[in-house]
Each structure stands twice: as structure tokens, then as C-alpha cells.
């Protein structure tokens, strides 16, 4: 499989004003050196806690934000070399769906107008009747009906609004769709509907997804590969098969899974595995490995220098000085926790 998106040493620092005149130059290190490859046709899941930079990373990939440093390639095209006009043309090939369905749709536009804009911008359909038909087809593909055309966003439920957002993202038949926590604001039953829809659309249209979420459970269902982010860095990348076997090499990944609420009362999070402390400030990340302050395996080397993301086994990357120890010691707990994904009702 060839890659659709590739980044090299991607960084995004946001300046923070401090003091009365903002004299000290402080920066939030939102994304701090990310090398990422997303393959054509796959769903790449990106997990991490709030403030880890996962949403910023997503926006950088679409160049909705300008990176501070680094390179981004979209289907071989150097995204950062493009001027404004070229970039707007290229936007036909990318879509985005956000977390908050209500805020994602212009409250003053009808659903028809919202879906018509992408077609108009990229001059995809000339004939007005054809346009209308294409929009209705799209609505039906995402599980809505012609009746919704004249509606305003506030007249729809959260799930329906999210369907409209999805329709807007894919009506131009893009190659790549960025899904930024698309189900986090939805109820469980609606989340299930949206996940099913996304899976079906991917198969039908051959889409590539970057699925960003804080919820490991959702990611383990929908992803083919998963990347874990902590404080602006990707600390582990693995495929779903390794995950299912409990082959986790980074302690943060393991603890993220272990503190995920159990989907079954017999798999409750035991108190020993609760990760203590909170994520440090991204303005002044800790020296060495960024996780060492909360890590039970941290040694001296972890405080001194930052581990590189290296391939520990085929297609499995980790940035940790103690991958084998982590895997061996946490595997029993991890495997036990993973069982919560198995007990499905008949």
C-alpha cells in the first residue's frame, strides 16, 4: 500500500502572551516533531488526551493551520509549496468532520445550501437539477431524506447534524477525510449509527480516514492502525492485530487502555493501574522522555534524553527506552482488560 499522507518532523508552536507586554516569548509546543504516514484506504486512529496536540496535527495535515516547521506530502504533492489558489483546488480531495455537530454547520444556511457549496466551489456539477439530485443522493447515502433539504441545522438532532457534516465532507468524492472526534459529542446509540455509516462509506467510496479520538474503545473498533500521542509527540504506532494480542510496548499506551472505562463490570479498572498525576504543561514539556514523570518504568536515561520513535518489530514503532520490559510486565493486565472487547451479546 502506498502512502496518501506523509509528514516529516512536523512542528507547530503557538505563541502565548505572558506578562503585561508579552515580553517573554513562550510557546505551546502543540505538535513537536511528528513523522507520520497514512496509507491509502486505511483508517488511521490517533489517540491521546486533551491538549496532546492530536487535533492540531489533524489540521496541519489539511493545512488549515500553517506549520512552524516540517514537511507534509499529500499523495506525493508537497502541500507547503502550494499557493492559496492551488490549495483551494486541492481541497476537493480532502474532507473534515468535527466533534461538535452544532457548531460545524452555518446556522443561517439550509441543509441544501450547505451541501451545494462544495459542488459550486469546485464546479463539479453545472446543471441545477443534476446538482439537486446529487445532493439528494448524498443525503440518502448518509441516512437522511429529501425532506431534510429545506431544514436548518438547529431543526436536526445531533446525530443528523453529524450526518450532514459527513455528507458535506464527502460530496466532492475526496480521497482523504479527517474525522476529529466525530462521535464524542453523541450518545452511544447514535455513535454506533455514525460508526457504521463511516465504515460503509469507506468501503463504497474507497476513502482514507484519519480518525482522531480520546476513546481507545472507539478506535480499536474502527482503526486499522493506531498512533498514540502524548504532549505533541507520537509515542507508539501499531496495527490492530498487535493491539488485540496485547503487544503494547509503550507504558503510556498501556495505561491509556487500562484506565479506559470498562465495557463490562467484570473488567473494572483496578486501582493499581490508575495513572497518577496529570499531563504536564505543553509550554514547558519535561526534559528527556515527556512521559517520565508519570512512568513507573522511568530510569535515569529517560530523564536525560528523549527516545526516538523506532521500529521494535515489523510495522510497530515505539519511542521508549524500556519497550520489552513494558510489554512483558503489563501484558497480563492488558490482556485481561482487552477481554472487555470480546463479550458481545448474542
Amino acid at each position: 500500500m502506498s502512502s496518501l499522507i506523509e509528514t516529516k518532523n512536523l512542528k507547530k508552536y503557538f505563541p502565548v502572551k505572558s506578562g503585561l507586554f508579552g515580553s517573554r516569548n513562550l510557546f505551546v509546543h502543540a505538535v513537536d516533531g511528528v513523522d507520520l504516514e497514512i496509507k491509502k484506504g486505511e483508517t488511521f486512529g490517533l489517540a491521546g488526551e486533551s491538549g496532546c496536540g492530536k487535533s492540531t496535527l489533524g489540521r496541519l495535515l489539511l493545512r488549515l493551520l500553517e506549520p512552524t516547521q516540517g514537511e507534509i506530502y499529500f499523495d506525493g504533492i508537497d502541500l507547503l509549496s502550494m499557493d492559496k489558489k492551488q490549495l483551494r483546488t486541492l481541497r476537493r480531495r480532502m474532507g473534515i468532520v468535527f466533534q461538535d455537530p452544532k457548531s460545524s454547520l452555518n446556522p443561517r444556511m439550509t441543509i441544501y445550501d450547505i451541501l451545494k457549496r462544495p459542488l459550486d466551489i469546485h464546479k463539479l456539477v453545472k446543471d441545477e437539477n443534476e446538482k439537486r439530485e446529487r445532493i439528494i443522493d448524498m443525503l440518502e447515502a448518509v441516512g437522511l431524506t429529501e425532506e431534510h433539504l429545506i431544514r436548518y441545522p438547529h431543526e436536526l438532532s445531533g446525530g443528523q447534524q453529524q450526518r450532514v457534516s459527513i455528507a458535506r465532507a464527502i460530496i466532492t468524492h475526496p480521497d482523504f477525510v479527517l474525522l476529529d472526534e466525530p462521535t464524542s459529542a453523541l450518545d452511544i446509540s447514535v455513535q454506533a449509527q455514525i460508526l457504521n455509516l463511516l465504515v460503509r462509506l469507506q468501503l463504497e467510496l474507497g476513502l482514507t480516514y484519519l480518525f482522531i479520538s480520546h476513546d481507545i474503545s472507539v478506535l480499536q473498533y474502527i482503526s486499522d492502525r493506531i498512533g498514540i500521542m502524548y504532549l505533541g509527540k507520537i509515542v507508539e504506532i501499531f496495527n490492530i492485530k498487535d493491539f488485540r494480542r496485547g503487544e503494547i510496548y509503550h507504558p503510556y499506551t498501556a495505561y491509556l487502555l487500562l484506565s479506559t472505562p470498562a465495557l463490562h463490570p467484570e473488567k473494572r479498572t483496578s486501582e493499581q493501574v490508575v495513572l497518577h498525576g496529570e499531563v504536564p504543561s505543553p509550554i514547558n514539556p519535561p526534559s528527556g522522555c515527556r512521559f517520565h514523570l508519570r512512568c513507573p518504568f522511568a530510569g535515569n536515561e529517560c530523564k536525560k534524553s528523549e527516545p526516538e520513535l523506532v521500529e521494535v518489530k515489523k510495522n510497530h514503532y515505539v519511542a521508549c527506552y524500556h519497550p520489552e520490559q513494558t510489554k512483558e510486565e503489563l501484558r497480563p493486565l492488558v490482556k485481561e482488560k482487552l477481554k472487555m472487547y470480546e463479550s458481545v451479546l448474542p
Partner: peptide
């Protein structure tokens, strides 16, 4: 977000 969405479709 709808403003960002507008930029993402090339407005």
C-alpha cells in the same frame, strides 16, 4: 467550526 469547515471545502 463552520468557518473552519468553510475553509476546508475551499471557500
Amino acid at each position: 467550526l463552520f468557518v473552519e469547515a468553510a475553509r476546508s471545502i475551499g471557500e
